[in-house]
Design a protein around this nucleic acid. Structure first.
Length: 218
DNA sequence: GCCAACGTTGGC
DNA sequence: GCCAACGTTGGC
């Protein structure tokens, strides 16, 4: 597939040089003005980019795999942890999520995607041959949810785990924005919210920069 | 409700 | 492939 619509999200050359926002207060998010009650969030979601069999099924799903999907969109199935599930349910349309590669040779943030459908029941919980089948979940009261995500773009530069950790460690001492980053404080959580500092989320994107927190840029 | 056993996650 | 971290299960 990857036919006509592929261009939407790839190699955007619009805007490019003209945007000259500086730190903080930039990037208003496409927030629909609904009384301003809900601040939009950024998220981090983990997936394994290298092949691994789980109940005979390969669970590999890299950001390249997302990019190769029809309309570059997929459902994010298989989350079986309550805290992670609750974050899925808190996600709102058009919010952005960092795609994190885990359990692989080079762990780190590979790219960006956005939420294109809010939480609905994860059908794989009812599929007996799914690696994520849950016999305790009933169709009339599903336990597990998923969202649909769409590829936005690759990071201009891959951000390795080691680099995130170095910032996290430094911020633990300095009180910086990544001091409580769930990647390190909630080690096995596969869906995470990036917490807000007073100027915004601890980690987010801008038009000019792939990824930044407060005044540090990647 | 405690907590040991167990299973999974995920870096290294 | 090892193994530490940690969430879940289930006996009591």
């Amino acid at each position: 597939m990857k036919g006509p619509e592929g261009k939407l999200t790839k190699t955007k050359n619009l805007g490019g040089a003209s945007a000259q926002v500086e730190n903080s207060s930039l990037q208003k998010t496409p927030a629909s003005e609904d009384g301003g009650e809900t601040l939009s969030s950024y998220w981090l979601m983990k997936s394994e980019p290298e092949s691994r069999l789980e109940k005979g099924v390969d669970v590999k799903f890299s950001i390249e795999d997302l990019q190769a999907q029809p309309r570059q969109t997929t459902c994010w199935d298989g989350v079986r942890n309550y805290q992670a599930r609750n974050f899925l349910r808190a996600m709102r349309l058009d919010e952005e999520a960092f795609f994190y590669h885990s359990n692989c040779r080079e762990p780190g943030i590979a790219g960006l995607m956005k939420i294109v459908k809010e939480a609905y029941p994860d059908h794989t919980q009812f599929e007996k041959n799914s690696p994520h089948y849950d016999s305790s979940s009933k169709e009339d009261n599903p336990k597990w949810s998923m969202v649909d995500v769409q590829f936005v773009r690759m990071m201009r530069r891959f951000i390795p785990l080691a680099e995130l950790r170095a910032h996290h460690e430094a911020h633990k001492a300095s009180g910086g924005p990544l001091k409580n980053m769930a990647l390190f404080t909630r080690q096995r959580l596969s869906v995470q919210r990036l917490t807000r500092g007073k100027d915004g989320p601890c980690l987010w994107t801008t038009r000019q920069n792939d990824c930044e927190f407060t005044h540090t840029r990647w």
